[in-house]
Nucleic acid binder design. Structure first.
Length: 587
DNA sequence: GCCGTTTTCGGCCCGACTGTTTTCAGTCG
């Protein structure tokens, strides 16, 4: 069993133990074990298993090492099998209902004998839930509502769409006279590919009118909590938003706290404690002394900081950009002054994977180039679909040659300042062969090779198929390597480690497809891959002019992957990109 | 279940809000 599959099993154990009412710290240990496994490189993990050194991993002790070892060797774990058998799957599902946690689910199960969502809905309908100790009419109605809207409430939201909702709210908050500072925090600020809910942090000494303004936004469908300093609302789409208002002096601490991630915060707090201080959303206060952190902060015992850089500085660290705050080594790097200078949107000088009306785009070649010029890009790559993608009106050899000629003519005309590269998004056929001949591909400036069919091949077949394409000397870059569509379609099964190795060995670039629905290759792979020499191309996969702006989503992911400008092809000058393409095509 | 420059036991991050309670447990982030 692979390391990520093992991590999933540990996560499952954590959930099941929670429903059993186990010691919360034991539960946390399983969850922490799962996360630490996910962060390990596969080779590293396999070595540790071979050496029987699993317990040398921080967060993995004797018990977890034994269980991980058993899962790795046999793919099964008796402990888990028994645990599963002892808990009805319906109880696990109930965790998705807002307001229901392990304790309440246990009470419902123990006292009412209910072990399915349907059974719970019935128990709400006939009033049995309200009669339970610790429950009442309101809890019952909330649970019933949660079951009815389970699908919409449980759903995550694409970063891009959530950001479109969030930005006007941030602007609206900042425009209010009572508001000194306002930011969107949470996973949105960290640039995660999907977002569970929105978190707004406001610094103000007069919170009441701000709270009212927020709760009365026209798009609010329901107010799920309303207090003096915190309110939660739900929008029509099911997206939930929280507003927290703190005194201006505490704004930076609250912003940092609610930006997260949880792992990052835990590490930051531990670091503060090592220095005799306690960090919370209220401030950075001495760990010793009377009262809670909040009380100390209110007595003025917190250090004062003007911004987050000041907060990190107090803990002897350089500023950690929100994108890196995932608890994946950023604390250590910041302490050592070894944080990367992350790539920024302004570093991009163009992009390579874009479509026109020749295949399935909505704008013509000239319109797309004009849009690139408007954005100040030095170059734009056109890579329309190849003939195998007939559903996308892919170009055959004749139409492609005609397009190449058009592009050469456009470049020669001097009509646009933006240079156009003639490329193609060539289908990787089922067996790994390419949809165009080597001769035709040699006529292009570059080739993006992508998989568009037979996405459900076995891992072995898909890996072999993609590697064969990556090894073709005419393939400049691999497009959307896993084919995933966020929240809609799972990634294809493939051994990405092997594919990355093959790309590095063959001087082939891998795309970070910046379409907000794809963000593929996922940011979690990039840090180590780039360290080993993999070059990235951030490509919007634009199907219309405005689609070029999706590079911003790609930049978010690239930053999360610790990428710097020199890791990314499209930060290079026109001249350098030409050199890179020429080297590849002269092979 | 994990961890240790207070090391083999006793901690483990912490606060807001809700609902059901009369002082707090549960959920959430």
């Amino acid at each position: 069993m692979t390391k990520n599959e093992i991590a999933e099993r540990l996560e499952e154990i954590a959930v099941l133990l929670e429903l059993k009412g186990e010691n919360p710290f034991k539960i946390r240990a399983y969850g922490a074990g799962a996360r630490v496994l996910e962060s390990l490189e596969t080779d590293e993990f396999e070595q540790l298993v071979a050496d029987e050194k699993l317990d040398s991993i921080k967060g993995v002790g004797t018990a977890l090492a034994q269980k991980i070892g058993e899962l790795h060797a046999t793919g099964e774990l008796e402990f888990l099998t028994e645990l599963r058998a002892s808990i009805a799957p319906g109880l696990v599902e109930m965790l998705e209902v807002p307001g229901l946690g392990a304790k309440k689910i246990k009470a419902i199960h123990d006292k009412l004998g209910v072990d399915t969502i349907a059974g719970l809905a019935e128990a709400c309908a006939d009033g049995r839930v309200a009669d339970l100790a610790g429950f009442g009419a309101k809890s019952q109605e909330k649970i019933a509502e949660g079951i009815r809207n389970r699908e919409a409430y449980g759903k995550r939201h694409l970063w891009w769409l959530a950001n479109e909702v969030a930005q006007p709210i941030v602007s609206g908050l900042r425009a209010r006279p009572e508001v000194e500072r306002a930011e969107a925090a949470g996973s949105l600020r960290r640039g995660m590919e999907t977002v569970g809910d929105l978190d707004f942090i406001v610094g103000s000494s007069d919170p009441a009118p701000v709270m009212t303004w927020f709760c009365e936004l026209p798009e609010v469908k329901e107010i799920t909590a309303r207090g003096e300093t915190k309110s939660s609302v739900r929008f029509e789409s099911g997206l939930q938003a929280d507003l927290r208002i703190v005194p201006p002096a505490q704004f930076v601490f609250a912003l940092h706290h609610f930006t997260g991630s949880k792992d990052h915060n835990v590490a930051m707090r531990q670091r503060a404690l090592e220095r005799g201080k306690s960090l919370s959303e209220w401030g950075l206060v001495p760990a010793k002394g009377d009262g809670t952190a909040k009380e100390k902060a209110e007595r003025g015992e917190s250090v004062e900081v003007a911004d987050e850089a000041g907060l990190f500085g107090e803990l002897g660290m350089s500023f950690v950009p929100p994108a890196l705050r995932e608890g994946l080594g950023e604390i250590e790097a910041a302490e050592a002054g070894e944080l990367p200078s992350l790539v920024a949107l302004s570093d991009l000088k163009g992009a390579f994977h874009n479509h026109t009306t020749s295949s399935d785009g909505r704008n013509t070649l000239a319109e797309m180039v004009a849009a690139a010029e408007q954005r100040g890009w030095a170059y734009l790559g056109i890579a329309d679909h190849s003939k195998a993608s007939f559903q996308a009106n892919g170009l055959d050899e004749t139409r492609l040659r005609k397009q190449i000629a058009e592009i050469r003519e456009l470049n020669g005309s001097g009509r646009f300042k933006t240079h156009v590269f003639a490329g193609s998004e060539v289908d990787i056929l089922t067996d790994g062969a390419l949809d165009f001949s080597d001769e035709l591909m040699a006529e292009l400036d570059y080739v993006v090779a992508s998989v568009h069919n037979a996405l459900t091949q076995s891992e072995a077949d898909m890996t072999k198929r993609i590697i064969r394409a990556v090894e073709n000397p005419h393939v400049t870059m691999l497009g959307h390597p896993t084919g995933r569509l966020l929240l809609r379609r799972e990634a294809s099964k493939a051994d990405l480690s092997k594919i990355i190795d093959a790309a590095i060995a063959n001087d082939t670039i891998i795309e970070l497809n910046a379409s907000p629905w794809r963000l593929d290759l996922d940011w979690r792979w990039w840090r180590k891959a780039a360290d080993r020499g993999l070059i990235c191309a951030i490509n919007p996969d634009a199907h219309e002019c405005d689609g070029l702006d999706h590079v911003a989503a790609g930049i978010n992911s690239a930053r999360k992957g610790w990428l710097q400008p020199h890791h990314i092809l499209n930060t290079r000058s026109l001249k350098d990109v030409r050199t890179c393409f020429a080297r590849k095509s002269s092979v």
